[in-house]
Amino acid sequence: MEIRLVRHATLIVRLDGKALLVDPMLSPPGAMPPIQNTPNDRRNPLVGLPELDLSPVDAVLVTHTHADHFDEAAAGELRKDLPVLCQPEDEEKISSHGFANVLPVKGSLDWEGIEVHRTGGRHGTGEIGALMAPVSGFVLRAPGEPTLYVAGDTVWCPEVEDALAEHAPDVVVVNAGAARFNEGDPITMTAGDVAEVARHAGGATVVAVHMEAINHCLLGRDELRSSLAEAEVSGRRVLIPADGEQTAF
Rank of each mutant, 00 (worst) to 15 (best):
S234T: 07
A231T: 07
R118G: 07
H123F: 14
Q36H: 13
L218C: 14
G120H: 05
P146Y: 07
T38M: 07
D68C: 12
V209T: 10
G203F: 08
R221I: 07
W156Y: 14
V135W: 02
H123S: 10
A195P: 04
M25Y: 11
L109E: 02
I3D: 00
V6F: 09
P56N: 03
H216D: 15
L218W: 10
G107V: 14
A231I: 07
D222Y: 12
D243A: 15
A151T: 15
A19C: 11
G203P: 03
I35P: 04
H123N: 11
T147F: 08
G220W: 00
G120M: 07
V155W: 06
L218M: 15
N40T: 13
G137V: 03
D170L: 05
L21E: 00
P39N: 01
H216W: 11
P134E: 00
D16R: 08
F138D: 00
E91K: 09
I114D: 02
P134Y: 01
L148N: 02
G124N: 01
P169I: 00
E2Q: 14
G152R: 01
G98A: 02
Q36G: 14
S96E: 09
E166T: 15
G244M: 09
P33F: 02
P134G: 05
V238R: 01
V209Y: 05
A142W: 06
E183H: 14
P33D: 05
D162L: 12
A59G: 11
T205H: 06
V139A: 08
R14V: 09
